[in-house]
Every structure is written in C-alpha cells, then in structure tokens.
Nucleic acid binder design. Structure first.
Length: 589
DNA sequence: GCCGTTTTCGGCCCGACTGTTTTCAGTCG
C-alpha cells in the first residue's frame, strides 16, 4: 500500500474512533499520524520503512509504526477491518451535515437506530429528533436544511472566485467608520487552490455597526450566526463567510490564528509552551496558572502587543513566515534557522509562455493579446496555440503555424508594442509519447510547450513513459499542465510525478505551473522537492483571452506555497536571458 | 495513541456561538 493510501486509512481510523466515542486525544493521534507520513515525502517514507520503521518520526509511536508497517507490507490491517465492520457506514457520511458531530450522531444511532442520512431525514420529518434530550425543534429544522443543501454547502470554491468575492468585502470593511484594520484570513490568505469558507478579521472600537454592514451585503442568502463579536453568512453560491471583530490589541493574534493552518497553529502553540508561554487568538501570556489566555491578557497590562505578524513571530524567536507557507510542513523549523526564502512575487514576473489566440481556441486576437501584455508592462508574451491533433481546439498544423510565425515576426518588426511576442506552440504529446508536429517546424520556434490532451485513461506506467519520452525529445522546452487535472471537475491522469520530475531535471526541461484557476498544475505540494532537484518553473496563465492573463496571480500563490524563489522561475528573467536559456536547451540537446 | 529539562503518568491548543438548558454540551474553526 502506498504512503498516501496509508495516510487515508489512518485518517479514516480517526474518524471511526471518533464515532465510537473514543478518547479525543487518541483520535487526534491517528490524524496527526496521517499528516506526519504525508509530510514525510515518498523517499524518506520508503527509506525509513526499509531501515526498520517510522517510530521516532514526530507523531508516530510504537502502535502507529506497527500499523503502518502492516499496511505497507500486506495492504490490510486487522484492527481497521474490525473497526469498519463494527460501525454502520452511514454514520460516517452523517458527519457531512453541518451541526452534526460524533456525539450527536451516537445519540441518534443509540436512541433512534438512525444509521444513514436518509433515515435521519425521515426521523426529522416525523418529529422524532426534536423529542430527544439535547435536541429540539430548532436543531431538527437545521438538520433538515443541512441535508437539503449538503451538496452546495459541502463544496469547496476556487480560490479565484472566492478572492473576487472577498476583495470588495475587505475594501468595504476598511472604509467603515470605526474600523481600524481589516483582513481576509483563512485558506484564501494562504493561497490554497480551493477555499472552504471566507474569514474576515476586523479591529474596531464598536462591533455592532460592522456586523450590521456585513450581514446586509448583496448576495447574502442566509445569516447563520450573529453574536456580539462574530457573525456568519452564507452567500448564494453556497460559500460561507465568517466575520470576527476584535479589539485592536488582539488583531495580530486573531489574524494569525484564523489564517492557520491548523497544523501550523498547533506547532506554534507547542513552541510557545516550550518557552513557558501560552498562545491563542487572544494573545501571548505566561503558561502557568489555570486561567485562560484571554483572562491573563485582559488582567495583566501591559502584555506584548506586536504591531504586525512579523512581531508575533519575533516573540517566539522566529523569522517571519509568509501566510502561504503556514501548512505545518517544516516552515517553523526553517524560520528557526533563518532559512525562510524570499518567495517569488507577482512583480517579479516579466512575461509568460503559454497563451492562446483566436488562431486556435482563444477568444482574443494576437494583436489584442499583445496590447494587453503591453498594458501589464510585460517584456515578452509567448503565444502557444494548440497543435493539429487537438482538433476540437482548432489546433494548428505545420502550415498554419508557419504563417503564425511570420505574423508574429511582422508584428514585432512593426514596433506597435513594447512587449516582444515569442513564437511557441502547445504541442500535443501523442499517446505513444511522440510530438504532434515535425521537428523541422518545431525548430523554428522560440520554444515548445508539450502537453497531454488525449488518452487520459492510460495506466500510470504508460502515461509516465509517454510523458518521459516527450521530455526526452530534444525540441521540448516546457512540459505543460503535468497532471491535466481540472479542480472540482476532473482528476488528473495517473502519472508518477517523481519520475517525471527526475526526467525534467536531467534533460533541462522546464515544468509549467499552469495558473489557470481550474488547473493550478503542477500542484504546489510537489514544487519544493522539484526545485531542490534543479527543475526550473514557468508560471503560465494559459490565457484564452486578454482577461485570462490576470490568472497568473493564482499561479503566484501556488509558486509561493511551493517555496519557490525568483531564481526558480524562468519568466522572472529579462528577455535577453530568457532567449539565451531557451537556446541553451536546444544546443544541449 | 503520543510524548517527556513537568520523563513512564498524566497531560494533550483554545475560545465563540447555538440550542438546549437553568449552568452547559456539542460543534466549529
């Protein structure tokens, strides 16, 4: 069984134990174990197993180590099988209903014999749920609403769409009288490719007018909570948004806390405790004594009140950690050693390579795309329309591509745009791993982006060999959208990314970070290791119209999450250096 | 189930809101 599959089993054991009413700390230990092996990486995981086991990895002790070894060797685990058999499978899916946790599910199961969402719905309709101790009419009505809307409510939202909704809210909050500071926190601020809900943190002298404004925004479909310091609303899209209002002295701590991630926060709190301090969204206080951090902070003035998150990290002897890195994946250890890199920024980019025009499936003409890149101040804009096998996208054959090269040459010569247009193509990688166009025409281009657009269902070995063969082709400059995933629409194809990354590293092929908000492919979770192996990244918007060029912002998020620096990204280079790098690949091959 | 300069037991991150209660449990983040 693979590392990821084992992590899933541990996580599921945690859920099942929770439903059984097990000790919550035991539950957390299984979930922490799952995260620990996910964070380990494949190579370290396999090496440690070969060397005798994972005991000693933080979060994995004797019991988990033995279970992991059994799963790895045999693909099954008696303990897990027995646990699964003892719990009705419908109870797990009931956890999806908002307001239902393990305790209530256990009561519903024990008292009413409910073991599925369908049975729960009937019991609510009959009024049997409201009659239970600890439940009531309101709970019953909320459960029915939760069941009816569970698809819409449970869905995550593309970062791009969530950002478009959040930006004007932050601006509106900041413009309110009495608001001192306002930020969006949560996974949006961490730049995750999808966002579960929005979190807004506001420092204000008086909360009520802020809450009033927030719950009466256009597009609010329901107000799900409304207290003195907090409100929650649900938008028509199903996206939920939480607002928290705090005193100014608490703002930095609240912003850090609600930015997360959970793993990062747990590690930060453990670090505080190791220094005799207790950290919460309320502040930082001495750990001794039984009172809450809140009580201590409010009782003892003055306490440390940092102006910014940088100041908060400094209180724990840490270098500032950018929000994108706060995933509990080694950023605190790096910050301790002063090893947090200067991450790439939007302003570092000087152009991009993978964009379409009306010649294939784009909606803007070459001239329109050039003018838009000019307006962005880009030094270069690469055009890479589809090749002939992508028939549905009106892909170009050798002859049409030749004409496009000439058109681009004339456009550059005319001096109409400061932005230099580069000639490229998004060339299909055919099912056998060969490229879709003749070497002769490919050699006339500035570069070639090679991408898979067909036969997605090939097995992992076939797909991996196919892509590696394309990487080995001397004309290939950039490997396009490595897995082909479309977030929330389609899984990526099966491919061994570790082998693809190795092949790209040894052949000097650049790997694309496709910044289309639906793709964000290759995923940020692989970039740190890829860059360490010497792979260069190209952040490409894959724009199909002029507005699509802005999507490059979504790519910057993921590049930052992947610990990439300016020097790891090809399109931060000035034009002359880019041309030299593209030529070097040709000469080397 | 994990962990340890609080070390083999007894902790384990912390707080707000809702709905049910009449002082609090459960859920959520």
């Amino acid at each position: 069984m693979t590392r990821n599959e084992i992590a899933d089993v541990l996580s599921e054991i945690g859920t099942l134990l929770e439903l059984q009413g097990e000790n919550p700390f035991k539950v957390r230990a299984y979930q922490a174990g799952a995260r620990a092996i996910e964070a380990l990486g494949n190579d370290a995981f396999e090496r440690l197993l070969a060397e005798g086991g994972l005991e000693g990895v933080r979060g994995i002790g004797t019991a988990l180590s033995a279970k992991i070894a059994e799963l790895h060797a045999t693909g099954r685990l008696d303990f897990f099988e027995r646990l699964k058999a003892s719990i009705a499978p419908g109870l797990v899916e009931m956890l999806q209903i908002p307001g239902l946790g393990p305790k209530k599910i256990k009561v519903l199961h024990d008292k009413l014999g409910i073991a599925s969402i369908a049975e729960l719905e009937r019991a609510c309709t009959d009024g049997r749920v409201a009659a239970l101790t600890g439940f009531g009419e309101k709970t019953q009505a909320n459960l029915l609403a939760g069941i009816a809307n569970r698809v819409a409510y449970g869905k995550r939202h593309l970062w791009w769409n969530a950002w478009a909704l959040a930006e004007p809210i932050v601006a509106g909050l900041r413009a309110l009288a009495g608001v001192l500071r306002a930020e969006a926190a949560g996974s949006l601020r961490r730049g995750m490719e999808t966002v579960g809900d929005l979190d807004f943190i506001v420092a204000a002298a008086s909360a009520e007018p802020v809450v009033d404004w927030f719950v009466s925004r256009p597009g609010v479909a329901a107000i799900t909570a409304r207290g003195e310091t907090k409100a929650s609303v649900r938008y028509e899209s199903g996206l939920q948004a939480d607002l928290r209002i705090v005193p100014e002295a608490q703002f930095v701590f609240a912003l850090h806390h609600f930015t997360g991630s959970k793993d990062h926060n747990v590690q930060m709190r453990q670090r505080a405790l190791a220094r005799g301090l207790s950290l919460s969204e309320w502040g930082l206080a001495p750990a001794e004594g039984a009172e809450t951090v809140k009580a201590k902070v409010q009782a003892s003035h003055p306490v440390a009140v940092p102006e910014s998150e940088e100041g908060l990290f400094a209180l724990l002897d840490l270098q500032p950690i950018p929000p994108e890195l706060r995933e509990g994946l080694g950023e605190i250890e790096a910050a301790e050693q002063g090893a947090i890199p200067r991450l790439i920024e939007l302003g570092d980019l000087r152009g991009a390579f993978h964009n379409h025009t009306t010649e294939s499936d784009g909606a803007s003409t070459l001239a329109e795309m050039a003018a838009a890149a000019d307006a962005l101040g880009w030094e270069y804009l690469g055009i890479a329309d589809h090749s002939k096998s992508s028939y549905q996208a009106r892909g170009l054959d050798e002859e049409r591509l030749m004409r496009q090269i000439e058109e681009i040459r004339l456009s550059n010569a005319s001096g109409r745009h400061r932005t230099r247009i580069l000639t490229g193509v998004e060339c299909d990688i055919l099912p056998d791993g060969t490229l879709d166009l003749d070497d002769e025409i490919l050699g006339r281009l500035d570069y070639v982006v090679a991408s898979v657009h067909s036969s997605f269902a090939q097995d992992e070995a076939t797909m991996t060999a196919r892509i590696v063969r394309a990487i080995e082709h001397p004309m290939t400059t950039i490997l396009g959208h490595v897995t082909g995933r479309l977030l929330q629409r389609r899984e990526g194809y099966q491919v061994d990314l570790s082998r693809v990354i190795d092949a790209a590293a040894s052949h000097g092929v650049v790997i694309e970070l496709n910044a289309s908000p639906y793709r964000v492919d290759m995923d940020w979770r692989h970039w740190r290791a890829a860059a360490e192996r010497g792979v260069l990244c190209a952040i490409n918007p894959d724009a199909h119209d002029t507005a699509g060029l802005a999507h490059i912002r979504a790519g910057i998020n993921s590049a930052r999450k992947g610990w990439l620096r300016r020097e790891d990204v090809l399109n931060t280079l000035p034009l002359r250096d880019v041309m030299a790098r593209l030529r070097r690949r040709r000469i080397a091959s």
